[in-house]
């Protein structure tokens, strides 16, 4: 198993005048509504335990009010928890004093915001270098790195523009360049693409995946959009009403939803695009072995189906990335999987 980069333990956040005074009530099982109506406190997060792996894209998903933005702000302590601890690289973030916390934020974390949060009075290149400036790096260093990351996110030529002169998508590219220029291990993205048009959002997701392939950062990505979560997430944590409902790979979430809430959440997803060959393969070699086709275990079911049909095979051999056989998929399984999925996709039509 990969290294754990961020560990969140028993994290509880209560908003209100005297959060500590009602903490015991919450621990003894007082529900959110009762806490609000009787005790005038809002339960933001309740007893979250989450281990986020190094070099993964860890998506935290939930609808508005589920506490996802509150949760991400605990990682760099923009919000102080009521109880619990946050361990990053073995260090407890909550034990840091002001100076240590600043150093931690500068060195370990960088953040991209939903509404960009650029500095309107700085040019694009100064915005991209903002994080480095906070670290008191010298001018040439800032200039060089800001320029490098602006080029990398496709904003060459816009260095001397002001944010207000750019479109939303371009502004968020500046936000991304600003975060990446800091060269921090952890990239925190708070609904970073939610404010963008669908096409631009898709471009930005591709850009992020492309960058991640070479950068291997630990990315904590907040979203309310399941398709986005499934597209970019190595792992997905689902929050509901301040509680962690499920944490697992997209496959886990689709094939084995933890409760009704997750099940309803994933009901409308086109699974053939998410499920992988390895999650539907089995060990037995099929009887009809006239014509085999070979796919990688990490290919999606719709790709497998496409390969099988276009090469007119009778069964599928699944290999890992080293070319070793790891399993088989016969036509029946594939047909059943697709049919079952389609029927789940459109329950009315079935």
């Amino acid at each position: 198993m990969a290294n754990i980069k961020i560990e969140i333990k028993n994290l509880t956040k209560i908003f209100g005048a005297k959060p500590k005074s009602v903490l015991d009530l919450v621990n003894n099982g007082v529900e959110k509504e009762e806490l609000l109506n009787k005790h005038k406190h809002i339960l933001g997060l309740h007893d979250i335990n989450l281990k986020l792996e190094e070099k993964n894209i860890e998506v935290i998903m939930g609808l508005s009010g589920s506490g996802k933005s509150t949760l991400i702000r605990h990682i760099n302590r923009l919000i102080e928890p009521t109880a619990g601890s946050i361990i990053v690289d073995g260090e407890d973030v909550l034990q840091m004093n002001e100076q240590e916390l600043r150093n931690f934020r500068q060195a370990k974390t960088a953040m991209v915001f939903q509404k960009f949060a650029l500095m309107p009075h700085h040019t694009v290149i100064d915005n991209a270098g903002f994080g480095l400036k906070m670290q008191n790096k010298d001018k040439d260093f800032i200039q060089e790195h800001a320029q490098k990351w602006l080029d990398r996110v496709g904003l060459s030529g816009f260095e001397n523009h002001y944010p207000a002169q750019l479109s939303g998508g371009m502004q968020q590219r500046v936000g991304l360049a600003r975060a990446l220029a800091c060269d921090a291990d952890i990239l925190m993205m708070d609904e970073a693409f939610s404010a963008l048009d669908p096409l631009i959002r898709s471009d930005m997701q591709d850009l992020l995946l492309e960058l991640q392939e070479e950068l291997h950062k630990t990315i904590v990505f907040i979203t309310h959009d399941l398709d986005e979560a499934l597209k970019i997430g190595d792992k997905i944590a689902i929050l509901n009403e301040g509680k962690l409902v499920q944490h697992g790979t997209p496959q886990d979430i689709l094939l084995d939803p933890a409760d009704d809430y997750v099940e309803r959440f994933v009901a409308d997803v086109n699974r053939t695009r998410v499920l992988l060959a390895k999650s539907i393969m089995n060990d037995e070699k099929p009887q009809d072995t006239t014509q085999s086709v070979t796919v990688l275990e990490t290919e999606t079911v719709d790709t497998v189906l496409h390969t099988l049909l276009s090469e007119d095979g009778s069964y599928v051999i699944v290999e890992d990335d080293k070319g070793k056989k790891v399993g088989y998929i016969d036509k029946e399984t594939l047909a059943e999987t697709v049919y079952q999925m389609e029927s789940q996709d459109k329950p009315d039509a079935a």
Partner: peptide, 11 residues
């Protein structure tokens, strides 16, 4: 938000 961003980058 601009202030929060400054905080997040360790200002």
């Amino acid at each position: 938000e601009a202030l929060e961003a400054a905080d997040a980058f360790g200002a």
